[in-house]
Design a protein around this nucleic acid. Sequence first.
DNA 1: ACAACATATTTATATATTTGCATTCGTTTA
DNA 2: TAAACGAATGCAAATATATAAATATGTTGT
Lengths: 98, 98
Amino acid sequence: MKITQFSVEQLEEAANMLKAIAHPMRIAIINHLEGGKRLTVTEIHELLKIEQSTTSHHLGILKDKGVLSSKREGKNTFYFLKHENLGQIVECLNKCCS
Amino acid sequence: MKITQFSVEQLEEAANMLKAIAHPMRIAIINHLEGGKRLTVTEIHELLKIEQSTTSHHLGILKDKGVLSSKREGKNTFYFLKHENLGQIVECLNKCCS
DNA sequence: ACAACATATTTATATATTTGCATTCGTTTA
DNA sequence: TAAACGAATGCAAATATATAAATATGTTGT
């Protein structure tokens, strides 16, 4: 007996969300945003040592798939986790990968 | 302050594991295996109405990336979750997607 | 050894993702 | 209104992934 029942649409959405997360850089980004932290594109780009445009692309993917939200404040755009419990996925991964 | 500290290798492994899960059919497979259930390739192939070879490919990916284990018993190969807490990811997704 | 069944692999094609350069857009400050 | 800064977008090349048909491998029973 399945615990959770997924519709085809839910399967698609869940897969898209996971696909968004399933990238080393993007896991690192989420990891840095855990605990309600807010970071700008430049901060992340310097923190992870990846190109500004690449960073923006990754953030765009995460935002588009519902993992992150963003808020523009002046010249900066801050990114943060949309659902705090998404951090659980990262924690769970950490347990399974060690 | 990050809760979890990932090494580059752990990020890669975590991403590979998530990438393995991040597919509608593969989420459906995991969903069917929750609670310690064991299913054969044919059972999954009939349950999800996808080609036998496609099913085998998906199962191979999940096994290769450490999500599933398998055990051959006679003509059949049974597949099952390697870490039961991987089901948590699916449950967490379900919460975030509804 | 042979037939029947279950699973895995090979191969090819279509499709999607990643990355960074170059450029553009939006905001602030001189 | 220009210059400077931060962020987003368009584009192209390299790489990876998905699917299924055909084939091969492994296992059981005759």
